[in-house]
Amino acid sequence: MSWAGRLSELGITLPPVAAPVAAYVPAVRTGSLVYTSGQLPFVGGELPATGKVGAEVSPEEAKRHARTCVLNALAAVDAAVGVDSIVRVVKLVGFVASAEGFTGQPAVINGASELLGEIFGDAGAHARSAVGVAELPLGAPVEVELIVEVR
């Protein structure tokens, strides 16, 4: 089965590629790798939440936003090379705008990691960083970058 078929089987439709909010492109291919720019949890061009995780945004809500971020990253990959050209997910980097004392970044970014596992199975197992930061663009609670190997 193709990855597009797997997405369909899961009832997932990739969103339109989020428009860049500064001077960059959503994804770049070099050799057999595609790197995405940081993807915010845009839905229909809007951020569904702003604020810091552990204060204005709950960890559970942030985990759902991390899932949205990775769907936006996959949309960028799809626009660049086609989702069916993905061989495996190499690395995921997640940033969490964290309230003082919040240390649950790994659990938040699991929203993205778990979805990659659902879609890609063993090919979705990846290296990962989950980093707490003071602020993210536009006040977003989470941001995700993705690196995938492609044919």
Rank of each mutant, 00 (worst) to 15 (best):
A55H: 07
V148H: 09
A22L: 06
V133N: 07
V70M: 05
A123W: 01
V21L: 09
A125W: 00
A79I: 03
G51L: 00
P106G: 09
V108S: 08
P48N: 12
S58P: 11
E61F: 05
D84M: 01
V90E: 10
S98V: 05
K52I: 00
P137W: 00
S129T: 13
V53T: 11
V144H: 02
R151N: 13
M1F: 12
S58H: 09
V83Q: 02
V43L: 09
A140I: 02
A107I: 01
Q39N: 15
E100P: 15
D84A: 06
V142E: 03
V70Y: 07
V142C: 04
V70R: 06
V21A: 13
L47Y: 10
A134D: 13
S85L: 02
P16I: 05
V77T: 13
E100H: 05
L146S: 07
L10T: 15
V108Q: 04
G132C: 00
R64C: 14
L116N: 11
R128Q: 11
G121C: 00
K52M: 06
G111F: 01
H65F: 13
T36I: 04
A75D: 14
G101W: 00
E143M: 05
A66L: 03
P48K: 05
L146C: 08
V34D: 09
G117H: 02
L146Q: 08
M1Y: 12
Y24C: 14
Y35W: 09
A127N: 09
W3R: 04
R64A: 14
G104P: 12
G51E: 05
C69G: 10
E56R: 08
G45R: 03
A66Q: 07
F102N: 09
